[in-house]
């Protein structure tokens, strides 16, 4: 079963066409890594999948629910607000710069949505939070504030915040780009563990070795199109552009 289906996605900012007809499918339990040069459309693709940007043309289905489609007459229409809100409950997104809520403690960052959006009791929400913090080795930081955590710890909290809502698919937008190499390792370890648990994930990343190890499918994007995809395009690229890009990583 496909948790994410994106067909013929087009997106322009003004006169700049950033996505030129992208097709991407992600099966349940699959880990997809999206690689490619900056400005190639990776992040925009992720932002379109997570409703942070609205597409101009194409079709997106998340967990079987249609988010948007383009009719034969060329009219692109999103589902109604209530459905969009419901679909948002089915995925999580981990940002490059965390975007934790600085005025909330770690615990409140994780439980706020559970309590006030998903109407769970405080006890229930706290139990979910405690379990996640334990799993991510952050239990002793429950009452800390984001500004007192290292970047790596902040990113783990933001992963916990996304996982708390029990998403069917988790998106990562360059989750380690704001971290130094030492802190990167801790975050990548968490993502690896999630992959082992068969969490469905789409990860935009510049960590080639990590992408190769953890991903079931690799997608190379450049110039607004998917140039090449497959399970071993890093070790065995077919396309000239892919080879050229990977050469930059030695």
């Amino acid at each position: 079963m496909n948790v994410l289906e994106m067909h013929n996605i087009h997106k322009s900012f003004g006169s700049l066409e950033v996505l030129k007809g992208i097709d991407l499918e992600v099966k349940k339990g699959e880990v997809v890594a999206v690689i490619g040069p900056s400005g190639g459309g990776k992040s925009t693709l992720l932002r379109c999948a997570t409703t942070l940007e609205y597409i101009d043309k194409g079709e997106i289905k998340i967990a079987g629910e249609k988010l948007v489609s383009t009719s034969q007459s060329g009219l692109t229409q999103y589902t109604d607000k209530k459905n969009i809100q419901e679909i948002r409950g089915k995925f999580g997104l981990v940002f490059q710069n965390f975007n934790l809520f600085p005025h909330f403690s770690v615990r409140r960052n994780i439980t706020e949505s559970l309590i006030h959006v998903h109407k769970k009791s405080k006890e229930e929400a706290n139990a979910i939070c405690d379990a996640l913090l334990k799993k991510l080795d952050m239990s002793e930081k429950a009452d800390s504030y984001p500004c007192n955590l290292s970047g790596g710890q902040q990113q783990r909290v933001s992963i916990a915040r996304a996982l708390a809502l029990n998403p069917e698919i988790l998106f990562f937008d360059e989750p380690t780009s704001a971290l130094d190499p030492e802190l990167t390792a801790g975050v990548l370890k968490v993502i690896r563990e999630l992959a082992e648990e068969k969490m469905t994930m789409v990860i935009v990343t510049h960590e080639m070795a990590f992408a190769r190890d953890v991903a079931d499918k690799l997608v190379f994007m450049d110039g607004g199109v998917i140039v090449e995809q497959g399970s071993d395009i890093i070790s065995n690229p077919q396309h000239e552009r892919t080879k050229e890009f990977l050469a930059g990583y030695g």
């Binding site: 997570t50 409703t51 942070l52 999580g92 975007n99 934790l100 949505s113 959006v117």
Partner: peptide, 25 residues
């Protein structure tokens, strides 16, 4: 803008986002 985006992804309504996330800051 990331504060709004994070709130949106977590399902907060516009009013919740403003009064719980934005206004206190």
């Amino acid at each position: 803008v990331g504060q709004y985006e994070a709130a949106q992804i977590l399902g907060f309504s516009k009013a919740q986002t403003f009064f719980r996330i934005i206004l206190p800051q």
